Amino acid sequence: MTGPVLDRRSLLSLGVGAGAALTLPRAARAADDRTYKILMLTFRGETEAERGFRDLLDTAGLKTEIISRDARRDIANLPRMLADLDTLKPDLIYTWGTPVTLGVVGPYDSQDPKYIRDIPVVFALVSAPVQARIAPSFASSGRNVTGAVHVVPTDVQMKAMQSYMEFSTIGILYSETEQNSVVIVREVEAFAKANGAKVIARPFKTDASGRPTADGVEQMVTQLRADKADWLYLLPDTFLGTIYDRVTPAALAAGMPTFGAAELAIREGGALVGLVSRYYSVGQLAGTKAVEILSQGTPPSRIPIETLKRFSLVINMRVAKSLGIYPPIAMLNYAELVTG
Protein backbone atom coordinates (compact mmCIF):
# COMPACT_ATOMS: atom_id res chain seq x y z
CA MET A 1 0.00 0.00 0.00
CA THR A 2 1.23 3.47 -0.82
CA GLY A 3 -0.47 6.61 0.32
CA PRO A 4 -0.21 9.44 2.83
CA VAL A 5 2.32 8.82 5.58
CA LEU A 6 3.39 10.89 8.56
CA ASP A 7 6.88 12.27 8.34
CA ARG A 8 8.71 13.78 11.30
CA ARG A 9 7.30 17.26 10.71
CA SER A 10 3.73 15.94 10.48
CA LEU A 11 4.05 13.91 13.66
CA LEU A 12 5.66 16.74 15.59
CA SER A 13 2.83 19.02 14.51
CA LEU A 14 0.56 16.69 16.52
CA GLY A 15 2.66 17.24 19.61
CA VAL A 16 4.37 13.84 19.42
CA GLY A 17 7.01 13.53 22.09
CA ALA A 18 5.86 16.63 23.95
CA GLY A 19 4.39 16.61 27.43
CA ALA A 20 0.77 17.52 27.95
CA ALA A 21 0.31 21.01 29.34
CA LEU A 22 -2.77 21.24 31.53
CA THR A 23 -4.05 24.42 33.11
CA LEU A 24 -6.04 24.27 36.32
CA PRO A 25 -9.38 26.07 36.37
CA ARG A 26 -8.70 29.53 37.79
CA ALA A 27 -10.94 29.31 40.86
CA ALA A 28 -9.40 25.99 41.83
CA ARG A 29 -6.09 27.56 42.76
CA ALA A 30 -7.48 28.81 46.05
CA ALA A 31 -7.72 26.33 48.91
CA ASP A 32 -11.11 24.70 49.42
CA ASP A 33 -11.84 23.51 52.96
CA ARG A 34 -14.59 21.11 52.02
CA THR A 35 -13.85 17.40 51.67
CA TYR A 36 -15.41 15.98 48.51
CA LYS A 37 -16.45 12.35 48.27
CA ILE A 38 -15.58 10.71 44.94
CA LEU A 39 -16.63 7.22 43.90
CA MET A 40 -13.96 5.83 41.56
CA LEU A 41 -15.17 2.97 39.34
CA THR A 42 -12.52 1.07 37.38
CA PHE A 43 -12.61 -1.97 35.14
CA ARG A 44 -9.20 -3.63 35.47
CA GLY A 45 -7.74 -2.15 38.63
CA GLU A 46 -6.18 1.27 38.94
CA THR A 47 -3.97 2.51 36.09
CA GLU A 48 -1.77 5.53 35.49
CA ALA A 49 -4.97 7.40 34.55
CA GLU A 50 -6.22 7.18 38.13
CA ARG A 51 -2.85 8.31 39.46
CA GLY A 52 -2.98 11.32 37.16
CA PHE A 53 -6.54 12.08 38.30
CA ARG A 54 -5.60 11.90 41.98
CA ASP A 55 -2.46 13.98 41.51
CA LEU A 56 -4.37 16.70 39.66
CA LEU A 57 -6.91 16.99 42.47
CA ASP A 58 -4.08 17.22 45.00
CA THR A 59 -2.32 19.89 42.94
CA ALA A 60 -5.59 21.83 42.75
CA GLY A 61 -5.75 21.84 46.54
CA LEU A 62 -9.00 19.87 46.78
CA LYS A 63 -9.56 17.71 49.83
CA THR A 64 -11.07 14.43 48.71
CA GLU A 65 -12.20 11.09 50.02
CA ILE A 66 -11.91 8.63 47.15
CA ILE A 67 -13.75 5.32 47.41
CA SER A 68 -12.33 2.92 44.81
CA ARG A 69 -14.28 -0.02 43.43
CA ASP A 70 -13.19 -2.31 40.63
CA ALA A 71 -15.24 -4.49 38.27
CA ARG A 72 -12.42 -7.07 38.08
CA ARG A 73 -12.74 -7.15 34.30
CA ASP A 74 -16.39 -8.16 34.42
CA ILE A 75 -19.01 -5.48 33.76
CA ALA A 76 -21.61 -7.73 35.39
CA ASN A 77 -20.12 -6.61 38.72
CA LEU A 78 -21.16 -2.99 38.17
CA PRO A 79 -24.61 -3.17 39.87
CA ARG A 80 -22.93 -4.45 43.04
CA MET A 81 -20.48 -1.54 42.91
CA LEU A 82 -23.39 0.91 42.86
CA ALA A 83 -25.72 -0.86 45.28
CA ASP A 84 -25.17 1.52 48.20
CA LEU A 85 -25.16 4.74 46.20
CA ASP A 86 -28.08 6.23 48.15
CA THR A 87 -26.24 5.93 51.46
CA LEU A 88 -22.78 6.68 50.06
CA LYS A 89 -23.94 9.99 48.50
CA PRO A 90 -20.80 10.82 46.48
CA ASP A 91 -20.26 14.34 45.18
CA LEU A 92 -18.87 12.93 41.92
CA ILE A 93 -18.38 9.59 40.16
CA TYR A 94 -15.24 8.83 38.14
CA THR A 95 -15.56 6.07 35.52
CA TRP A 96 -12.92 4.22 33.51
CA GLY A 97 -13.70 3.12 29.95
CA THR A 98 -16.78 2.86 27.79
CA PRO A 99 -18.58 -0.16 29.35
CA VAL A 100 -18.35 1.24 32.89
CA THR A 101 -19.37 4.73 31.80
CA LEU A 102 -22.34 3.47 29.79
CA GLY A 103 -23.31 1.21 32.67
CA VAL A 104 -23.45 4.24 34.96
CA VAL A 105 -25.02 6.96 32.80
CA GLY A 106 -26.53 4.94 29.92
CA PRO A 107 -27.10 6.33 26.41
CA TYR A 108 -27.98 10.02 26.36
CA ASP A 109 -31.40 9.31 24.84
CA SER A 110 -32.37 6.55 27.29
CA GLN A 111 -35.17 7.08 29.78
CA ASP A 112 -34.31 4.00 31.85
CA PRO A 113 -34.45 4.99 35.55
CA LYS A 114 -31.61 2.63 36.45
CA TYR A 115 -29.07 5.08 35.06
CA ILE A 116 -27.59 7.83 37.22
CA ARG A 117 -28.83 11.31 36.32
CA ASP A 118 -28.41 13.31 39.53
CA ILE A 119 -24.70 12.90 40.34
CA PRO A 120 -21.91 14.44 38.22
CA VAL A 121 -19.91 11.83 36.30
CA VAL A 122 -16.42 12.33 34.83
CA PHE A 123 -15.00 9.62 32.58
CA ALA A 124 -11.52 8.78 31.37
CA LEU A 125 -10.39 6.32 28.70
CA VAL A 126 -13.55 6.44 26.57
CA SER A 127 -12.52 6.31 22.93
CA ALA A 128 -15.71 7.30 21.08
CA PRO A 129 -18.23 8.98 23.42
CA VAL A 130 -20.45 10.30 20.62
CA GLN A 131 -20.60 7.03 18.70
CA ALA A 132 -21.21 5.14 21.95
CA ARG A 133 -24.10 7.57 22.64
CA ILE A 134 -22.68 8.79 25.90
CA ALA A 135 -23.03 12.31 24.50
CA PRO A 136 -24.58 13.78 21.34
CA SER A 137 -21.47 15.93 20.79
CA PHE A 138 -18.10 16.78 22.28
CA ALA A 139 -19.29 20.33 22.96
CA SER A 140 -21.90 19.21 25.48
CA SER A 141 -23.36 15.97 26.77
CA GLY A 142 -26.53 17.86 27.63
CA ARG A 143 -26.58 16.11 31.00
CA ASN A 144 -24.56 15.06 34.06
CA VAL A 145 -21.46 13.68 32.31
CA THR A 146 -18.22 14.93 30.77
CA GLY A 147 -14.73 13.51 30.45
CA ALA A 148 -11.44 12.88 28.68
CA VAL A 149 -10.96 10.89 25.45
CA HIS A 150 -7.68 9.00 25.08
CA VAL A 151 -7.57 7.79 21.49
CA VAL A 152 -5.66 9.49 18.67
CA PRO A 153 -7.85 9.90 15.55
CA THR A 154 -8.00 6.62 13.66
CA ASP A 155 -6.69 7.95 10.35
CA VAL A 156 -3.67 9.49 12.10
CA GLN A 157 -2.91 6.13 13.74
CA MET A 158 -3.11 4.38 10.36
CA LYS A 159 -0.67 6.87 8.83
CA ALA A 160 1.72 6.35 11.74
CA MET A 161 1.46 2.58 11.26
CA GLN A 162 2.17 3.00 7.56
CA SER A 163 5.16 5.22 8.34
CA TYR A 164 6.68 2.41 10.40
CA MET A 165 5.97 -0.31 7.82
CA GLU A 166 3.71 -0.18 4.78
CA PHE A 167 0.78 -2.57 4.59
CA SER A 168 -1.81 -3.92 2.21
CA THR A 169 -3.91 -5.78 4.81
CA ILE A 170 -4.78 -4.91 8.42
CA GLY A 171 -6.04 -7.55 10.84
CA ILE A 172 -8.37 -6.65 13.72
CA LEU A 173 -9.92 -8.59 16.61
CA TYR A 174 -12.76 -6.83 18.40
CA SER A 175 -15.86 -7.12 20.59
CA GLU A 176 -19.14 -6.75 18.73
CA THR A 177 -20.78 -5.76 22.02
CA GLU A 178 -18.60 -2.64 22.37
CA GLN A 179 -20.06 0.11 20.21
CA ASN A 180 -16.86 2.14 20.16
CA SER A 181 -14.99 -0.89 18.77
CA VAL A 182 -17.55 -1.36 15.99
CA VAL A 183 -17.21 2.32 15.07
CA ILE A 184 -13.41 2.17 14.95
CA VAL A 185 -13.47 -0.94 12.76
CA ARG A 186 -15.60 1.04 10.30
CA GLU A 187 -13.16 3.95 10.43
CA VAL A 188 -10.22 1.65 9.70
CA GLU A 189 -12.15 0.08 6.83
CA ALA A 190 -12.90 3.53 5.38
CA PHE A 191 -9.23 4.52 5.59
CA ALA A 192 -8.11 1.25 4.01
CA LYS A 193 -10.60 1.54 1.15
CA ALA A 194 -9.48 5.08 0.39
CA ASN A 195 -5.85 3.98 0.30
CA GLY A 196 -6.04 0.73 -1.64
CA ALA A 197 -5.76 -1.63 1.31
CA LYS A 198 -8.15 -4.05 2.99
CA VAL A 199 -9.19 -5.02 6.49
CA ILE A 200 -9.83 -8.46 7.97
CA ALA A 201 -11.93 -7.81 11.09
CA ARG A 202 -13.03 -10.75 13.21
CA PRO A 203 -15.15 -10.54 16.36
CA PHE A 204 -14.34 -12.46 19.51
CA LYS A 205 -16.46 -15.49 20.32
CA THR A 206 -19.16 -14.94 22.93
CA ASP A 207 -20.53 -17.02 25.78
CA ALA A 208 -24.17 -17.94 26.42
CA SER A 209 -24.86 -14.50 27.90
CA GLY A 210 -23.40 -12.70 24.90
CA ARG A 211 -20.19 -11.57 26.59
CA PRO A 212 -16.91 -11.87 24.64
CA THR A 213 -14.55 -14.70 25.54
CA ALA A 214 -10.93 -15.48 24.71
CA ASP A 215 -11.77 -18.96 23.43
CA GLY A 216 -9.60 -19.77 20.43
CA VAL A 217 -8.00 -16.33 20.32
CA GLU A 218 -4.51 -17.66 19.54
CA GLN A 219 -5.89 -19.53 16.54
CA MET A 220 -7.69 -16.38 15.40
CA VAL A 221 -4.41 -14.47 15.45
CA THR A 222 -2.61 -17.23 13.56
CA GLN A 223 -5.36 -17.29 10.94
CA LEU A 224 -5.13 -13.53 10.41
CA ARG A 225 -1.45 -13.95 9.60
CA ALA A 226 -2.22 -16.88 7.32
CA ASP A 227 -4.71 -14.62 5.54
CA LYS A 228 -1.84 -12.20 4.81
CA ALA A 229 -2.49 -9.54 7.45
CA ASP A 230 0.61 -7.32 7.57
CA TRP A 231 -0.33 -5.75 10.90
CA LEU A 232 -2.58 -6.64 13.81
CA TYR A 233 -4.25 -3.44 14.98
CA LEU A 234 -5.04 -3.48 18.70
CA LEU A 235 -7.96 -1.08 18.79
CA PRO A 236 -9.13 0.43 22.12
CA ASP A 237 -11.43 -2.45 23.00
CA THR A 238 -11.98 -2.96 26.74
CA PHE A 239 -12.14 -6.74 26.52
CA LEU A 240 -9.13 -6.95 24.22
CA GLY A 241 -7.17 -5.01 26.82
CA THR A 242 -7.72 -7.83 29.31
CA ILE A 243 -6.19 -10.50 27.05
CA TYR A 244 -3.09 -8.78 25.67
CA ASP A 245 -1.12 -11.57 27.37
CA ARG A 246 -2.66 -14.05 24.94
CA VAL A 247 -2.98 -11.96 21.80
CA THR A 248 0.44 -10.35 21.47
CA PRO A 249 2.49 -13.53 22.14
CA ALA A 250 0.44 -15.28 19.44
CA ALA A 251 1.11 -12.41 17.04
CA LEU A 252 4.82 -12.50 17.87
CA ALA A 253 4.94 -16.25 17.27
CA ALA A 254 3.28 -15.70 13.89
CA GLY A 255 5.75 -12.95 13.00
CA MET A 256 3.01 -10.31 12.81
CA PRO A 257 3.68 -6.79 14.13
CA THR A 258 1.10 -5.19 16.41
CA PHE A 259 0.05 -1.53 16.56
CA GLY A 260 -1.63 -0.35 19.76
CA ALA A 261 -4.21 2.41 20.12
CA ALA A 262 -3.75 2.59 23.90
CA GLU A 263 -0.64 3.13 25.99
CA LEU A 264 -1.06 -0.11 27.94
CA ALA A 265 -0.90 -2.09 24.69
CA ILE A 266 2.78 -1.15 24.28
CA ARG A 267 3.98 -0.69 27.84
CA GLU A 268 2.34 -3.76 29.35
CA GLY A 269 0.65 -5.59 26.49
CA GLY A 270 3.66 -6.41 24.32
CA ALA A 271 2.65 -4.49 21.19
CA LEU A 272 5.38 -3.30 18.84
CA VAL A 273 4.36 0.34 18.43
CA GLY A 274 1.53 2.77 19.03
CA LEU A 275 0.56 6.41 18.69
CA VAL A 276 -1.07 7.08 22.02
CA SER A 277 -2.19 9.51 24.69
CA ARG A 278 -0.47 8.92 28.00
CA TYR A 279 -2.85 7.47 30.56
CA TYR A 280 -1.44 9.71 33.29
CA SER A 281 -2.17 12.82 31.21
CA VAL A 282 -5.66 11.59 30.33
CA GLY A 283 -6.33 11.18 34.04
CA GLN A 284 -5.08 14.70 34.67
CA LEU A 285 -7.39 16.06 31.97
CA ALA A 286 -10.32 14.26 33.60
CA GLY A 287 -9.16 15.75 36.90
CA THR A 288 -9.40 19.31 35.59
CA LYS A 289 -13.04 18.64 34.76
CA ALA A 290 -13.70 17.25 38.22
CA VAL A 291 -12.18 20.41 39.69
CA GLU A 292 -14.46 22.60 37.60
CA ILE A 293 -17.48 20.66 38.82
CA LEU A 294 -16.56 20.42 42.49
CA SER A 295 -14.74 23.67 43.13
CA GLN A 296 -16.51 25.99 40.71
CA GLY A 297 -19.93 24.36 40.66
CA THR A 298 -19.98 24.15 36.86
CA PRO A 299 -22.54 21.62 35.57
CA PRO A 300 -20.97 18.77 33.53
CA SER A 301 -23.24 19.69 30.61
CA ARG A 302 -21.33 22.98 30.32
CA ILE A 303 -17.89 21.34 30.32
CA PRO A 304 -16.85 20.01 26.89
CA ILE A 305 -15.54 16.51 26.37
CA GLU A 306 -11.94 16.78 25.21
CA THR A 307 -8.95 14.82 24.00
CA LEU A 308 -5.32 15.63 24.69
CA LYS A 309 -3.40 17.80 22.27
CA ARG A 310 -0.14 15.91 22.85
CA PHE A 311 0.50 12.36 21.71
CA SER A 312 3.41 9.92 22.05
CA LEU A 313 4.80 7.53 19.47
CA VAL A 314 6.00 4.61 21.60
CA ILE A 315 8.10 1.75 20.22
CA ASN A 316 8.87 -1.46 22.09
CA MET A 317 12.42 -2.22 20.94
CA ARG A 318 12.43 -5.65 22.55
CA VAL A 319 9.51 -6.65 20.31
CA ALA A 320 11.14 -4.96 17.30
CA LYS A 321 14.25 -7.09 17.85
CA SER A 322 12.23 -10.29 18.24
CA LEU A 323 10.36 -9.62 15.00
CA GLY A 324 13.37 -8.25 13.16
CA ILE A 325 11.20 -5.28 12.15
CA TYR A 326 12.97 -2.11 13.18
CA PRO A 327 11.63 1.44 12.86
CA PRO A 328 12.92 3.80 10.20
CA ILE A 329 16.03 5.60 11.46
CA ALA A 330 14.34 9.01 11.22
CA MET A 331 11.55 7.80 13.51
CA LEU A 332 14.04 7.31 16.33
CA ASN A 333 14.46 11.09 16.51
CA TYR A 334 11.00 11.63 17.98
CA ALA A 335 9.73 8.25 19.22
CA GLU A 336 9.89 7.07 22.82
CA LEU A 337 11.69 3.75 23.01
CA VAL A 338 10.69 1.07 25.51
CA THR A 339 13.61 -1.27 26.11
CA GLY A 340 12.55 -3.23 29.20
Rank of each mutant, 00 (worst) to 15 (best):
S127H: 15
V152M: 01
S127W: 01
A83E: 00
F123W: 06
P299I: 03
T298M: 07
A76M: 15
T64Q: 12
P113Q: 05
V152Y: 04
V247F: 06
Q157P: 11
L14S: 15
P99K: 05
A18Y: 11
A194D: 11
T42K: 00
D91L: 06
G297R: 01
D109V: 10
I119G: 03
T154F: 02
T47M: 00
G15L: 08
E46Y: 02
T146I: 13
L323F: 03
S13N: 10
W231A: 14
R225S: 12
L275S: 01
W231H: 05
T35K: 06
V149S: 01
P113Y: 02
L102G: 11
L332H: 01
Q223F: 08
D207Q: 04
Q157N: 10
T64F: 05
Y326S: 11
V151S: 08
M1S: 13
N195K: 04
N180D: 09
T339N: 05
V122F: 04
A30T: 15
L82I: 01
A190H: 01
A192V: 04
V16A: 08
R310A: 09
G17H: 01
W231L: 10
R44G: 12
T222N: 15
K193Q: 14
Q223S: 14
A139V: 13
S163N: 09
K89G: 10
S168F: 07
H150R: 03
Y174N: 09
A197I: 11
R9H: 12
T95K: 01
V149M: 04
T248F: 11
P249Q: 15
L85T: 02
A128Y: 05
S13W: 10
K114S: 15
V182P: 04
A60D: 09
Y164Q: 07
G15W: 02
P236S: 10
L22G: 10
A265I: 02
T298K: 15
E336R: 05
T288L: 08
A201D: 15
I67S: 00
I303E: 06
P99I: 05
L235Q: 09
Y233C: 07
V291W: 02
L12P: 15
A201T: 15
F239G: 13
G17I: 12
H150Q: 12
R54E: 13
A28K: 02
R69P: 11
N77K: 05
R310E: 10
F204W: 02
M256Q: 07
L102P: 04
D118T: 06
I266V: 09
A320F: 08
E46V: 10
A18I: 13
A254Y: 01
L294Y: 01
G269L: 07
I184M: 15
A49Y: 09
A20F: 15
Q157H: 11
T47K: 03
V221K: 06
P300W: 00
G106P: 02
D227M: 12
T23D: 13
S10L: 11
